[in-house]
Structure formats: structure tokens, C-alpha cells
Amino acid sequence: MKQKFQIDGISCGGCIARVKKALEEHPNIEKAEIFLAPKGAAIITMKENLSTDELQKQLNTLEGYTITEIN
């Protein structure tokens, strides 16, 4: 299942690589696509639905990023 999110704190390709790696380490995340245009837009493919709080916990391994769901 794919869901759209906004990840604040993304400013460059290096940010994208770090955030993608951190998210994809979660066992229920199959794929994380993160974009610079629009900045911080993300499509996350999950095996089972994860809450925004669970995704934020996964991102908390890094500093300076916050994730919100886009409806």
C-alpha cells in the first residue's frame, strides 16, 4: 500500500539518501521515494499500514526531520 507524506528538513540529495535508508530499515516498509521537487514530498510503500507516529519514530534515528501525512 502506498501513502503520501511530507518530510520536513529535506534540503539536498544527501538528506534524501539518509532518510530513505532510515525508513527502509523498518521491516514493514518496502520502498521510500523522496523528492526534491516538491521538496520533501514522499511516497512510502508499506507491507502493512504504519501510523505517522511509527514513521516518525523510525526517522528519529536521524536529527532534524519530521513527517506528516498528505491526504
Rank of each mutant, 00 (worst) to 15 (best):
K57D: 08
G14W: 05
L50G: 02
T61R: 15
L62W: 05
E48T: 08
Q58P: 06
E30P: 01
A41L: 10
M46H: 03
G9C: 03
S11G: 08
T68Q: 13
G13I: 03
L50Q: 06
C15K: 00
K4T: 13
A37N: 13
I44K: 03
I7P: 11
K21V: 07
Q3V: 05
E63M: 09
L55N: 08
I43E: 15
I43S: 15
G14L: 13
Q6W: 01
G14C: 13
K31Q: 11
Q58M: 10
K31I: 05
T66I: 13
L50C: 11
M1L: 11
L50N: 04
S51T: 07
A42W: 02
C15G: 01
I44H: 07
S51H: 03
E48C: 09
E30L: 12
I16A: 03
L36H: 00
T68R: 12
Q3G: 09
L23K: 09
A41C: 10
L23I: 13
N49R: 04
I67R: 01
R18G: 15
H26P: 08
R18M: 15
K39P: 02
C15D: 00
K47E: 14
C12K: 04
V19L: 01
G9R: 07
I34S: 05
L55T: 06
K20H: 14
K20M: 12
N60D: 14
I29E: 04
T45F: 10
P38R: 00
N60P: 00
E30Y: 06
Q58K: 10
K31F: 03
C15V: 00
T68V: 08
C15Q: 00
E25K: 08
A41Q: 12
I34D: 09
I34C: 07
K57C: 04
I43D: 14
Q3L: 11
E48R: 02
H26V: 07
A37M: 14
I29A: 06
M46E: 09
